[in-house]
Amino acid sequence: MSTAPAAANAANIRAIRARRFRNTVYGWIFAAPFTLFFAVTFVVPIIVSIYQAFFTTKSVGGGLYGDGERVTSFSGLDNFEAVVTNGDFWVGMGRVLLFAAFQIPVMIISALVLALVLDSYLIRRVTVFRLGYFLPYAIPGVVAAMVWLYIYSPHLGPLTDLTGINFFGKNIILASMANMTTWTFTGYNMLVFLAALQAIPTDLYEAARLDGASGFQIATRIKIPMLSGAALLTVLLSIIGTIQLFNEPTIMASSQAWMGKNYTPMMMAYNTMMTSPGDPHMASAISIVMALIAGGLAAVYAFVQTRVDK
């Protein structure tokens, strides 16, 4: 009598395990295309870049013109030492950090305000406004930078005549690029905040209204404090993106020769690689140092944010 229930339980356990195994297999099958694509386009290039950064390619022989055989040899940390002792690299890094210091707060605050407005009862056609704010992000970065280059141009665009400002001046060009970046990414960050706002239980709002709270008090005392996670995400992405600032200064430099090829660290890495003869090893070292700086800044901000939230 006791063997039948035991056998049934064993069969049920085997069936459950078999079902879990099938679900795991199906999950990996569905995830395989993304995993493969992610590895090929993201993980493998990072590994190759790290590997290349520890080598140097030099011409051996060839006489006066140095057109002999190119030999690649292990150089250890020499490329990294060359990067961290390069004054142009740190001047460019200083520019992007200054850029981030005033561009990121303006963009994040603007995105937060737009999200709060769309989440309130002030806007009826939320979809139309949400799409309109997001559209600049859908425009390719290079195309958007070219459009703003035209708008800023004193000979073609209207802004110079209306404002009397030289948007290509050495003291104002960072602000001009910041305006381009803010215009592009504010809508994207707004959607992050809006998604976080819509995840807040509406019971909290109803309880606050019953206690006599105004819409402004609900926004400042309930909504904004509960957006710390979204704010952390948007600021971290903005820090990483700012360290990689490339499209805007590259397009600007096409008409402003005084900016040079090393105006930002990303431009320096790109031109080191693409200018003949290209040096992929030094470009890889520049990229890795940039990544370490971006990761360090992001980690510091995340640590400070979590400490403040406590």
Rank of each mutant, 00 (worst) to 15 (best):
A257E: 15
M267V: 09
M190T: 00
S228H: 08
N247V: 03
E248L: 03
N189C: 08
N247H: 05
K223F: 02
R221H: 14
F216C: 06
T242I: 05
P225F: 10
G241H: 08
G212Y: 08
A231L: 10
M259H: 02
M259P: 07
G241A: 13
F216E: 05
P249Q: 04
N189E: 13
Q244D: 03
K223S: 15
M266I: 03
R221T: 12
L210V: 15
G241F: 02
V192K: 04
M190R: 00
P265H: 05
L245V: 07
I200R: 00
L245C: 06
F246W: 06
A208I: 03
Y205M: 05
G187D: 12
M268K: 06
N189Y: 14
T250M: 13
K261E: 14
A257F: 12
A196Q: 03
Q256E: 15
S238H: 03
M252S: 12
N247A: 12
K261D: 09
M267F: 05
L232E: 06
A207W: 05
F185C: 00
N189L: 00
T250K: 01
G260F: 04
T264D: 08
L237K: 02
F216D: 00
S214A: 09
A207N: 02
T220Q: 10
I200A: 09
L237W: 04
Q217P: 01
T186P: 01
I243E: 07
M267T: 09
V235Y: 05
P265L: 01
Y263L: 11
M190Q: 12
E206R: 12
D203Q: 14
L232K: 09
Q256G: 01
G215D: 13
Q244C: 04
F216I: 14
M268W: 00
R221L: 15
L237M: 15
T250R: 10
A199N: 13
M252V: 15
L204P: 03
I224C: 08
F193V: 07
Y263N: 10
L197W: 01
R209L: 11
L191N: 02
T234W: 04
I224K: 01
M259I: 12
T186W: 11
A207I: 08
F185W: 13
I222M: 13
S255G: 11
S238M: 06
A207C: 10
L197H: 02
Y263G: 11
T184K: 10
L197Q: 00
T234C: 13
M268D: 04
I222T: 13
G187Y: 05
P225H: 07
Q256V: 15
R209S: 12
Q217V: 07
L236A: 15
I243Q: 03
L233W: 04
A257P: 02
I239K: 00
P225R: 02
Q198M: 08
M268P: 00
L236S: 13
G187K: 04
K261L: 14
L210H: 04
A253D: 06
N247R: 04
N262D: 14
L236Y: 02
L197T: 01
A213P: 09
